[in-house]
Amino acid sequence: MTKIDATHNLSESAPSSVLRKVLITIIGGLTAVFSIAFLAGYTVAVTEQGGLNAYAIGTIAAGLGLIGLTVFISYKLWPKGTHEAVPAREKKSQHILWAAVVIGVLLGGYMAVASGDNPDGVFSNEPVTASFAVISIATWLIIVPIITWMWWRTIDEHEADAYREGALVSAHVYIFLAPTWWMAARAGWAPQQDPMIVLVIVSIVWSIVWLYRKYA
């Protein structure tokens, strides 16, 4: 094998390592947020019901262990050692995405703790306190748009195309899903439409198309 072949093979295999990083971040992040939500809810419930016993402490320890295990497995599975040069634009884009992930985890963690003994509190429609609403809305209306704008100005044209295609497909998903669910609910065939569930479905489709078009 010539040197040219070797470098070419390295570059051909590299995209899968990036996809691996993305998948580890998403799966690890979700596991961590759900574990934190479970731990917060369980701890509050146990405390309110009369204190900690050995079983409760064991369960909390198991929850902490799950978080630790998630971090450990993520670290072990994280691709290492390629030492490839990364374009300045790509580095900046990655930093912005990491900032978004950190903000998402912090907000998710805060929601988990604020939801107290309700294990489904993070994704429920239960009432929240005014301070919690202010923090969430301010994050969504001020910080997230700034990060999105910065990221959009940083990415290259290939990623922008992939993101636009994701937007197009997910817009069609919304156009077909929302009226169908609305009409089905009016006919009594489905529960009332939940806009957050629609948002999650649209966002997932958008992300799948975007990542597929970028990395596949």
């Binding site: 070419h8 995209p15 990036v18 040069a85 990623e159």
Partner: peptide, 15 residues
């Protein structure tokens, strides 16, 4: 490598 060319063009390796 693709990564080297990507640095020259300031686009991602995937591009």
């Amino acid at each position: 490598s693709q990564a080297t060319l990507a640095v020259h063009l300031d686009v991602s390796r995937q591009a």
